[in-house]
Design a protein around this nucleic acid. Structure first.
Lengths: 144, 144
DNA sequence: TAAAAGCAGTTGCTTTTTACAAGCAGTTGC
DNA sequence: GCAACTGCTTGTAAAAAGCAACTGCTTTTA
């Protein structure tokens, strides 16, 4: 599975198009979702999500997210073979997009009841949510 | 060009996934953008956008948008062969998603200067923007 | 301490989608 | 009456997605 046509050359200077150049597919934002809302940080965890992403597609998209600086990876100190994926500030900034997609689906699509309960909780105070994501994903600052 | 895998069976009940099932590709939201921000209403106009959508893909996506009730089509009274595409309320409700994608691209992607000027103007007062879209796209109500 | 299970991917192959170019049957303007 | 325009369709090649198996380590387990 070869090229990354997403990142190569923008189709236009339009901001909508420039966004879709990166995450205009069925999987990329689901990985971000898993990082954001489902506490997933490992390759195997992403594979286990309900939508059933294939292993090769996942690898490809993680590569894309890394190359775009939306996600970073680091060794897991607890396990030589484990890798921890984290959102960058750029990745955390995707939160409002995911929230608006969710809001739209809530109104117009058959969102599962389980998600209705869960997601509503996530909607409360985006600022707070962002702060929590920064704490969980961004490198620790040693400020008092 | 065959199936519409988008609308068939949701991959999960997750609202993000349910949104992407429909518009998780590189083209669908660009058509919506053209309807929303660029005043395009005709097939040939969509074809002329900067990103260069192919004719068959456009036909396929319009079919999808119609089947999902995001867009409707009507005969153009001025021309037997012309068709006018309009957004539905469901389509207009995608505005906040496009706006958040734009906002993100403004910060993190090389948005063209021309778009920077133009899009900023569009950002002012989403409510007003929605009202304008309703007037331009939704069937005329005969209320005083 | 050796086998089993977990880890992040990769490989090979088939099916589906996209891209590109051309064409089509009507309709309209001149 | 003819060229240009209308919303598409068709054919074919290239790219991407889907599927299943597998790899080379590492850690856990019996």
């Amino acid at each position: 599975m070869g090229k990354q046509q997403a990142t190569e050359k923008p189709r236009s200077g339009c901001p909508v198009s420039l966004g879709l150049d990166i995450f205009g597919d069925k999987w990329t934002l689901l990985i971000v979702r898993d990082l954001m809302f489902n506490g997933k940080r490992h390759y195997r965890e992403f594979l286990q999500s309900a939508e059933g992403i294939s292993s090769n597609i996942l690898a490809d998209r993680l590569k894309l997210l890394l190359s775009e600086g939306i996600v970073i990876k680091a060794d897991d100190p607890s396990h030589l073979q484990k890798v921890v994926y984290s959102l960058t500030e750029k990745g955390i900034a995707l939160l409002p997009i995911l929230m608006q997609i969710s809001a739209w689906s809530f109104e117009y699509r058959p969102v599962g009841q389980d998600y209705r309960d869960q997601t509503l909780a996530e909607m409360v105070d985006p600022e707070q949510r962002v702060a929590a994501l920064r704490r969980a994903h961004l490198p620790k600052t040693t400020n008092p």
